[in-house]
């Protein structure tokens, strides 16, 4: 214990508690709850039955009232812990409730009906995971369809992004040609044109190309990312030009130089871009919302937001689907977090 305490209460310099030490610990421990808490609560809630979700105050863990089937009755009844009038305790099943009086039977001796004031009974609860929250959306809704759409958009958009951006970055880093600066400026200038500014005309262009209500209409406008070109170009600039010269002397064609020399050497930057592209495309919301109006084309994000905006929100399904939507990003976070954070610190991109 004392070791743990020594670790927890370790202080900088060991000169006694400075107010900044206290702030630090409050901030970090508070952060632990605020940053992870909501997601944990979401996962916990997603395993509760609709009845448990409607309860207030809610329970931390998913509890349901234990059911028991009683001889002579078709339906199983809720089981209660009851304090009888004589002060003794019994575990009884509730057959029906009239006002504040509950009619109960002993499951072991189902013959006799016992009337109990509802204030004298507390439900017998057991932990139960409502896994049907997860399985039902797959069968009853188009959830599987949405999942597939999201995966398709993410994978295809990322592949095209990598190829197209790396080709452009190669041209902009390893060739001297007229208009290179202009091309670079055009690409940088597009940083100033976010989707929210051009969504109206972009919609008409996508429609004119016949891409409205098509996953390609979601994919294509996103693949020529200025940031992608930018980080790949910055990385390629660090590859010595002498390698390109050497390859030219080695009779390599320009295409070969691109894919046999430059691409393999740009792998770390490509990996960063790939991860970012996956996260961006998986999370995209506004543009798919505009382009996709047919239900069977929704991505997860669009489907989720549409369902959660309905009048009778089926929270138990929404929560479970949210968890599923979150899973790939959480996996990316767990395994590639260090990679991403260094990438951001190095390039300032998001």
């Amino acid at each position: 214990m004392s070791r743990v305490a020594a670790f927890v209460f370790r202080r900088k310099g060991g000169k006694g508690w400075h107010w900044t030490d206290i702030v630090t610990w409050v901030w970090l421990v508070g952060g632990l709850f605020i940053m992870f808490g909501p997601a944990v609560w979401l996962v916990g809630s997603s395993l509760k039955t609709p009845a448990a979700l409607a309860e207030f105050p809610p329970t931390i863990l998913p509890y349901v009232t234990q059911k028991v089937s009683v001889e002579g009755f078709d339906k199983p009844f809720d089981l209660y812990e009851v304090t009888l009038d004589d002060g003794s305790k019994a575990t009884l099943a509730e057959v029906r409730r009239i006002g504040i009086v509950s009619q109960m039977v002993d499951p072991k001796a189902p013959g006799e009906i016992i009337k109990v004031n509802i204030a004298q009974r507390t439900p017998v609860r057991e932990m139960s995971f409502a896994t049907e929250n997860y399985t039902e959306p797959f069968t009853h809704f188009d959830f599987f369809r949405y999942l597939w759409n999201s995966v398709f958009v993410t994978v295809v958009a990322t592949l095209i992004t990598l190829v197209v951006n790396s080709m452009a970055a190669f041209a902009l880093s390893k060739y001297e040609f007229r208009g290179r600066t202009a091309a670079m400026l055009v690409i940088l200038a597009t940083l100033m044109v976010p989707l929210s500014v051009i969504m109206v005309p972009l919609y008409s262009i996508v429609s004119a190309l016949g891409l409205f209500n098509s996953l390609w209409g979601v994919i294509l406008p996103t693949v020529a990312t200025p940031t992608g070109v930018f980080i790949l170009r910055q990385y390629m600039l660090t590859i010595p030009d002498e390698l390109v010269d050497a390859a030219r002397m080695d009779k390599a064609s320009e295409w070969q130089i691109y894919w046999r020399i430059i691409l393999p050497l740009t792998a770390p930057a490509l990996a960063v871009l790939a991860i970012f592209s996956v996260v961006w495309r998986w999370n995209d919301f506004l543009w798919p919302l505009i382009v996709l109006s047919r239900k069977e084309l929704y991505t997860l994000q669009v489907g989720l937001s549409i369902y959660s905006g309905e009048l009778n929100v089926q929270w138990h399904f929404i929560l479970a689907m949210t968890v599923v939507t979150m899973i790939p990003v959480v996996l990316v976070f767990i395994f590639l977090q260090r990679f991403i954070t260094t990438g951001i610190a190095g390039t300032g991109l998001k």
Binding site: P240, E242, L243, D245, A246, A247, R248, M249, D250, K251, A252, I261
Partner: peptide, 15 residues
């Protein structure tokens, strides 16, 4: 590529 020459670079430029 078509001049039939070979070059050794200062940095060696090995792949």
């Amino acid at each position: 590529a078509d001049r039939g020459l070979a070059m050794v670079f200062q940095s060696y430029a090995l792949y």
